[in-house]
């Protein structure tokens, strides 16, 4: 059991590792020096500048809208695919799985440039819509793979039992499948949201007039140097996440994420 103790210690160390840069972001967001290379006492200046920066806030809004739509659509399509493939026993099952994972193995810049030419040939104007489509194709495989790992565990006799009890297919879904898949659904949504929210490469090629996302804005301002305002924004986003977690309620969160399979 001493091995267990070492393993536990190591795993706790992993969580420290995950939060090291986050702590650095928060600490340096109060740094009076205009650079990350020195620390010169505390200031709230960067937070003030952040809220005065209307352009930056606009990009944050764009990113949030795109990420919410992308994650929701990817999760819905992912649920359908996962349930479908879990019950599908026909030929070509492996090829279908490979197909859905395909976008993962294409370097994003290749897909981004190619999608740009697809959209320009079909005269689809670049904007939030094309951003969602581009982000969808990179987050869909992740969402689907997460959902599939749960869906294949479902008892195949469940839907029949539900139908016997007089459930319509929709009721079967909402009353039987969804509660059972809920942890995976939440995990898939979070993963897609994160993927979309932090995407740079797809956004570079697929954003249009007035739809610059936050990572794009940050990436393009690298030439003049990142300001601590960006740290302040990062710190605020973490804070916002924690507030949401608290609002939804830690107990609720537990229930959503952990209770599974009945």
């Amino acid at each position: 059991m001493t091995v267990d103790r070492v393993v536990n210690g190591f795993a706790r160390g992993v969580f420290v590792f995950l939060y090291l840069p986050i702590v650095a972001v928060i600490v340096y967001s109060f740094n009076a020096a205009g650079t990350n290379t020195r620390f010169e006492g505390l200031t709230l200046q960067w937070y003030v500048e952040l809220f005065q920066d209307a352009a930056l806030m606009q990009t944050l809004q764009t990113s949030a809208i795109v990420a919410v739509i992308t994650a929701t659509v990817a999760t819905i399509i992912g649920i359908m695919f996962a349930l479908g493939i879990a019950r599908y026993r026909g030929r070509g099952r492996a090829s279908l799985l490979a197909l859905i994972a395909l976008p993962l193995i294409v370097p994003e810049i290749v897909l981004g440039v190619a999608l740009l030419s697809v959209f320009s040939t079909t005269r689809i104007p670049l904007g939030i819509g094309t951003l969602v489509l581009g982000h969808l194709i990179v987050s869909l495989p992740l969402a689907t793979l997460v959902l599939m790992s749960s869906a294949v565990m479902l008892d195949p006799s469940l839907p029949e039992a539900a139908t016997d009890l007089g459930c319509t297919p929709w009721q079967t879904f909402t009353r039987v499948y969804f509660p059972l898949l809920r942890p995976a659904v939440v995990a898939a949504w979070l993963l897609s949201f994160t993927t979309s929210f932090s995407n740079i490469v797809m956004s570079t090629f697929l954003s249009g007039v007035g739809s610059t996302t936050l990572p794009l804005k940050i990436y393009s301002s690298l030439k003049t140097g990142l300001t601590p305002t960006i740290n302040a924004l990062g710190a605020l986003l973490i804070l916002l996440t924690l507030v949401i977690v608290l609002l939804v309620g830690v107990t609720q969160m537990r229930r959503i994420l952990v209770e599974s399979r009945g």
Binding site: R123, L126, S211
Partner: peptide
Amino acid sequence: VNVDNFDSNETMISKLAAGNSGY
């Protein structure tokens, strides 16, 4: 005025080359 930023000349050129950029 709607302002968007690019990170490199190449990005900007590929956007314009796709046509119909609106800029």
